[in-house]
Design a protein around this nucleic acid. Sequence first.
DNA 1: GCGGGGATTAACT
DNA 2: GTTAATCCCCGCG
Length: 189
Amino acid sequence: MISVASLRSKRLGARWFHRDPATIARALLGCALVHGDRAAMIVETEAYLGPEDLASHARFGPTSRTSVMFGPGGVSYVYLCYGMHQMFNIVAGRDGEPGAVLVRAAAPLVGLDPDPGTLRGPGKLTKAMKIGRAQDRVPLIDDALFVARHARPRAIAVGPRIGVDYARDWAARPLRFWIEGHASVSKVR
DNA sequence: GCGGGGATTAACT
DNA sequence: GTTAATCCCCGCG
């Protein structure tokens, strides 16, 4: 029986996130994202690297919005996109190594509509999980917002990131990860 | 200050 | 395939 209480005991520590974004993005698949009394299994992620990555918010260097990406991993980064959708990211890497992982889709576990489409897509995910700007820059060693070990995916697929065609050659890099065949993944190859 | 664009979504034709 | 909704942030002056 899955519960928020049982997930809390399997929480990932800050150091777990002190690796490169692509490694974290892959390792997050199958983990549980918990906010308050809601929990969902992460099924799709994207890695965003440092200033060299033309798709990453870090490409302009640290700014008022993105400086959190340049700090230590294990901290949330939430921003508004297209004026209406919140995007939930987890900072990855050690202090001074910029990068983050966008959580693009998840499957309902606790306290959510069980329809697999409920958290399919980054904007829908934050809406369903009630994650917003109040959850920006929160260290995930938090009683209300954290990530926990949960399941180990059977097969993982890799491909180009979504919606970053402006990033020239970086748009084609294989930095999107998803659980092969899972019904809650936002788009298929 | 001002102007432009975006890590999206749903509802169109 | 196309488009509207909607607003904060960034770059420039």
